[in-house]
Design a protein around this nucleic acid. Sequence first.
DNA 1: TACGTTGGGAACTTTATTTGTTTTTTACGT
DNA 2: ACGTAAAAAACAAATAAAGTTCCCAACGTA
Lengths: 203, 203
Amino acid sequence: MNDDKEKIIEFATQKFMNGGFYRTTIDQIAAEMHVSKKTIYRNFSSKEELIREIANRFLLKNSKLVDEALGTKGNAVLKLFKIFETVGEIMLKMNFDVIKDIHHYAPDIWREIDDFRTKKMTSFLTSIISQGQKEGYFVKKKPEIIVTLFIASIRAVVNPTFIINNRFTMLEALKETIELIIYGITTDKGKKEFNKLNHGVIQ
Amino acid sequence: MNDDKEKIIEFATQKFMNGGFYRTTIDQIAAEMHVSKKTIYRNFSSKEELIREIANRFLLKNSKLVDEALGTKGNAVLKLFKIFETVGEIMLKMNFDVIKDIHHYAPDIWREIDDFRTKKMTSFLTSIISQGQKEGYFVKKKPEIIVTLFIASIRAVVNPTFIINNRFTMLEALKETIELIIYGITTDKGKKEFNKLNHGVIQ
DNA sequence: TACGTTGGGAACTTTATTTGTTTTTTACGT
DNA sequence: ACGTAAAAAACAAATAAAGTTCCCAACGTA
């Protein structure tokens, strides 16, 4: 029966998130599930495929969260704010070593994740910035340029190779980066709007 | 010259703390330091010895922090509070996967750490609890029993095998545990004193 | 009861990676 | 120009995990 597959994914996700992809072996998963390796390999051709499946589900779940944030009624500044709030929450929940593992041992999967993330960001940032320009919150530079700048900056920070010692610093770095960029692309009207949400951080 | 040794330790510590002990190989360290493996193996007979050295220094450093907290002037309740504040700070700074790595791949070293920690805790808790009993803050049960209970509870929580999803939850768990135990061993006078420091959490 | 299918568990092979060693090359000081 | 010392590279050995195979027990069905 192929309700095994779901159970394996569920259990493996827990183990992986706790122990990292590398430290957690297929043997361990099988043993602790009281299932034979054969059963696992019948459902997944390799450990990598299992990891890929789990990564995809994770992306999909977070993708939905972002979509919800995007669905927020209101002006572009509010939407942008909501999205970064959501991203921050996702990052807080994440075990950072899991990301490091993928980056290190499964660079293919990492590339997929990065691609997905980039496409997602490009699409929503473009739409928000266009909206914000019409509303007079963002300066009227070419949206593609703004989006590229935005994504490049975020990717530079939210990346395992970015030297960090702990999650807090990392989140802080992201926040600072975003504030910097927002300062550069908002009109006076936009800055005012942002300060309402962000406790007056943007001058 | 044997100023190499210090440089290796310094660099390796950075790499290990960021990448974990397992993911970080001697080859990587050598390559990134622009040093040959021979140089590393001349100073350390094995990777394990290098790790042990780093772990020892880490323990020593934190041990000193605890000693400082212990040196705080004041009653036993204040001292206890200070120490757990310090421990909390240390935990926040720590990359938890590094601990998981040691626990998993170098159980010998882990046992040493655990021993050290236990001895340290036993010594300071015994002294604090005796002091607090004289001052009338703690109930007059046998200190050895209280200390044993205390240490067992803390070890149960501050342990890689304790299932946790993120650092925050873990710290929270530790805090709750400590509050529970303190509730059980303080007199009314002690509870009042603790609430002054702890925003009225102990009822 | 006999038969057949299914999956667990253990034993096995294979493959990949890393440790630790040895050899070669390079560079620098005398 | 020569000798030494360390880097770089090539090597062997060990380890550990992935993936496969086999055997056996449990269970359902005829």
